[in-house]
Nucleic acid binder design. Structure first.
Lengths: 244, 244
DNA sequence: GTCTATATCGGGATAGAC
DNA sequence: GTCTATCCCGATATAGAC
């Protein structure tokens, strides 16, 4: 077996086991057995289990974020200087992720589910490299959303982006998780339908009227916080109408 | 130390450690040390680590779902037979959860974060008792939503409910997770503001225009699937306008 | 009910032969 | 590069004294 082969087999086996039972219960013994390689091969090729985990994420995330940025580039080129529509930005970010989740060659829904879970797990170790891998792509998408929604406070956009990530995570977890809520009558085999469902939900949330924030102290400077609520209400009117 | 005391100390310590580092890394040694009790006490009081995990969820979930149903009862009594507004239903389900997340006496945000994560983890063990604990409450809320949104296909409502759970989960994970996306400038200390932000996002998503579902084979019978798309489009118009 | 001590297992990592 | 054998640790669970 060639070196590259062994590496790949380990990565694939590890990913599958992480998805099914988490980082801890997937022991090196299980991983190497599933991969059909020797136990010691993991330490030889990756150095440690942690490094293996890191690499499992790195290879998928760098591909995913590449695709996302490529799609964003394409849309921005087409738009010739005009700001993108929110729906286009969401399509580039979430649509590409859903497409990856539907593609067996790139880890299928398994990896995306793993990613969604890991995202809310506050382990310093996973947090650090997720931030690294995400930084570049997220920065671009943030800016695109700020441009597309100039009247919406930036903090509000960030929170809604965060909420959208949560919805996507559960969407990809699919009927498996939904069946906790309702044992019957839901079908997630149709990825096209899931995409349409999720996109209209996300767009609805993103362009919802702005919340009535309670007056509060500003974070850094001491500007009059009363104004803030007013400004949000004003923006709410226009936002609910203007977008698509 | 009284028996009840020991039980409680173990439950609290276990919950806190599960939140911080998951079920597997929280060993009985860590749990009992943090609780200030003897290692053997866990097996004496709960029988096994799995049973302890189960009990950690049961005590919080039964309280949470009690509160949710109480609030739903109250709203339905007030409404005297008329269907509730979607916003009221969301308030009873998600608002109560956020309130619990903000209340240190009931586990604070810790437990809710743990719950959100566990929800997407496909372990048979956790899945089974989550379904048990949720069944009653979710059934009532489903029915309330069906009544409140008679023109929206039931399957669509279930998916949107699922998406909303995802958004809530991430909302409660809070700035810790958001900072993966953006290292600065976000503040989650204000739970009132978080509540308002999340509610307007959820409502926007719930009442979004219905998706354009691709034609597909019906699930059980072979009724003409073309009609389905048309029906959804029709409904979309009314739904986007009618709700609040 | 609570303790100490221990049985038993499975984990990650590594040394050293091939 | 890959293997076997093994070290060392920490996990759950339990037996038996108090």
């Amino acid at each position: 077996m060639s070196e590259a082969d062994t590496r790949l087999r380990i990565l694939d086996a590890a990913e599958a086991l992480f998805v099914d039972s988490g980082f801890e219960s997937a022991s090196l013994r299980l991983i190497t057995a599933k991969a059909g390689v020797n136990l010691a091969a993991v330490n030889y090729h990756f150095g440690s289990k942690d490094a293996l985990i890191h690499e499992v994420f790195r290879r998928r995330l760098s591909w995913l974020n590449d695709q996302r940025l490529r799609e964003l580039d394409r849309l921005e080129t087409e738009a010739t200087g005009k700001p993108l529509k929110p729906s286009q930005i969401l399509q580039a970010f979430f649509g590409v992720a859903l497409k990856m989740a539907a593609d067996q060659d790139n880890g299928g829904s398994g990896f995306m589910r793993l990613l969604g879970r890991t995202y809310t797990q506050p382990s310093e170790f996973t947090r650090r490299f997720l931030a690294e891998e995400y930084a570049a792509a997220v920065g671009r998408f943030k800016e695109a959303l700020f441009l597309a929604l100039p009247e919406v406070p930036r903090e509000e956009i960030l929170w809604r982006f965060h909420f959208m990530l949560g919805a996507m995570s559960y969407a990809i977890s699919g009927a498996d998780a939904l069946n906790i809520v309702d044992k019957d009558s839901v079908d997630d085999s149709n990825t096209e339908a899931l995409y349409e469902r999720l996109m209209s939900f996300l767009l609805g949330g993103l362009r919802a009227p702005l919340p009535n924030l309670p007056a509060q102290a500003e974070k850094v400077t001491g500007r009059k916080s009363v104004r803030k609520t007013d400004r949000n209400n004003l923006a709410a009117e226009s936002v609910a109408v203007q977008l698509t």
